[in-house]
C-alpha cells in the first residue's frame, strides 16, 4: 500500500501540473518556464538530506556539489523569474 500511495501522489501531481499550465497565454510561456524551473529547485532539499547522510569523503564531495547546484537552481530561478514578471507590472500600468 505504501508504494501505491506514492503512485497516487505521482499521478495526481502529474494531472495537477497539466491542469495548472493549460490555457496559458503565449506571452507567459517564457516566465512560466522560468517559474517551473525555479520550483524544481526544491531538489536542493533532497540534496541537503543526501549530504546530511553522507559518510565517506566521496559521498560528501558529491553531496556538496549537489547542494551547490541545487541552491544555484533555486536562487537563479527565483531571480530570473521575478525580474521577468516584474515587467508585467509595468505593462499593466501602461494600459
Amino acid at each position: 500500500m505504501e508504494g501505491f500511495i506514492s503512485a497516487y501522489i505521482f499521478m495526481l501531481a502529474a494531472f495537477t501540473g497539466y491542469e495548472v499550465i493549460s490555457r496559458v497565454p503565449v506571452i507567459l510561456h517564457t516566465p512560466l518556464m522560468s517559474g517551473s524551473n525555479f520550483v524544481h529547485g526544491v531538489v536542493l532539499v533532497g540534496a541537503m538530506v543526501a549530504l546530511g547522510n553522507a559518510g565517506t569523503p566521496l559521498e560528501k564531495t558529491i553531496g556538496f556539489v549537489a547542494v551547490l547546484l541545487g541552491a544555484a537552481n533555486a536562487a537563479g530561478g527565483y531571480v530570473v523569474t521575478e525580474r521577468m514578471l516584474g515587467m508585467f507590472k509595468n505593462e499593466k500600468k501602461g494600459n
Binding site: I9, Y18, V24, S36
Partner: peptide
C-alpha cells in the same frame, strides 16, 4: 524520482508537477 528515493513528498510533488507542466509547455 529522486524525491521518491529520499522519501520526500515535497520533491515528489514539485518535481512531477513541473515534469507534467513542462511537458505541456
Amino acid at each position: 524520482f529522486e524525491g521518491y528515493v529520499m522519501g520526500n513528498p515535497a520533491l515528489i510533488i514539485a518535481g512531477i508537477v513541473v515534469g507534467a507542466a513542462g511537458t505541456l509547455l
